[in-house]
């Protein structure tokens, strides 16, 4: 948008009416940039997220679990694809975005920088990480940018099985042998706080009373509907009773129902750790990117071959015509 008042007014008129902005509409450059960053980060999270779970495809303990896990990791590749395509409607290419991921100029969800050490981690990811992701994503199906909202509708529909399968996998463990139950509890202990951290920093960063300006701006643009803390609370309230059904203990001694608030009180994650992981200091940051980059490099000759073949056939067709 060249910043003319009339165009800006038209843009905000659509936003204020809870309408959808579509790819060829005029939009403020900052809106476009912010969306590209958010959608790209989301897409990167889907494809990096394939790794910790993909880690267990070859070792899944039953053929049924193997099939479920394969289908789930495959869905994540699909979701990454939908999201890259949504970002591409904003005038960036998937290659550019992948390049930024590979050179660490764009982020992905820090949760995937933790390792999946046992089979129970696969269940915990489905239950907690996908649960947190769905909490985050459902409001995005009403996001102001049409292609992103439509991708989220599709993704939310497909992800409904992801959380359920994780819960079911954990349930099988908690109803199983003492070793299996211990495995499940250990997984919850390790994944609980990182899952809480998935909602991002607290609204009142640094103890101040003001919501981050970034959040304010995203809300004004209709690309964020609820604050980080609101979504985090929603997730905790939803998850605690599920842990009871599983017969697992939340690793938070201060977690209890607060009648007055009508919500659970809980201990927030260690934000210093979160920022350290975001900034590259997590247990698997280097491994995840190296894996991704090496797959991309090793695939280059294949992609080139397909392009070369297509070009040859095209020339052949034109020569015949």
């Amino acid at each position: 948008m060249d910043g003319s008042d009339e165009q800006e007014a038209a843009f905000y008129a659509i936003i204020d009416a809870d309408g959808r902005i579509e790819p060829r509409d005029d939009m403020p450059e900052a809106y476009r940039r912010s969306l590209v960053r958010q959608i790209a980060q989301h897409a990167h999270s889907e494809i990096i997220g394939m790794q910790p779970e993909g880690n267990w495809i070859s070792r899944a303990p039953s053929l049924r679990r193997k099939a479920i896990l394969l289908a789930k990791v495959q869905d994540e590749a699909g979701h990454g694809l939908y999201l890259y395509a949504a970002a591409e409607t904003l005038g960036v290419s998937r290659d550019e975005l992948l390049d930024k991921l590979h050179t660490r100029r764009q982020k992905y969800s820090s949760i995937f920088n933790y390792p999946t050490l046992t089979w129970a981690d696969v269940g915990a990811i489905g239950w907690l990480v996908d649960g947190a992701a769905i909490t985050n994503q459902i409001p995005l199906t009403r996001c102001s940018y049409g292609p992103y909202a439509r991708a989220m509708v599709r993704i939310c529909k497909e992800e409904s099985f992801h959380q359920r399968q994780g819960f079911e996998a954990l349930l099988a463990l908690t109803r199983g042998t003492p070793e299996q139950k211990a495995m499940a509890q250990d997984a919850l202990n390790r994944w609980w706080y990182p899952s809480l951290a998935m909602f991002g920093p607290p609204d009142t960063e640094g103890g101040g009373a003001k919501r981050s300006t970034h959040t304010e701006q995203s809300m004004r643009w209709g690309i964020k509907r609820f604050s980080n803390d609101e979504l985090r609370q929603r997730f905790v309230d939803m998850t605690v009773p599920q842990a009871d059904v599983l017969g697992l203990r939340m690793p938070d001694p201060d977690l209890r129902w607060n009648d007055e608030r009508g919500h659970y009180d809980f201990t927030p994650p260690d934000w210093d750790e979160l920022f350290a992981v975001i900034n590259g200091d997590g247990p698997c940051n280097a491994q995840r990117i190296e894996h991704r980059v090496s797959a991309h490099h090793e695939g280059q000759w294949v992609r080139d071959a397909a392009s070369a073949y297509a070009a040859k056939r095209q020339r052949h067709l034109e020569g015949v015509a």
């Binding site: 694809l81 397909a306 297509a310 056939r313």
Partner: peptide, 11 residues
């Protein structure tokens, strides 16, 4: 329904 990348129509 969406878009994707491919080298040619068949793919």
């Amino acid at each position: 329904v969406g878009s994707l990348h491919a080298p040619d129509a068949e793919m």
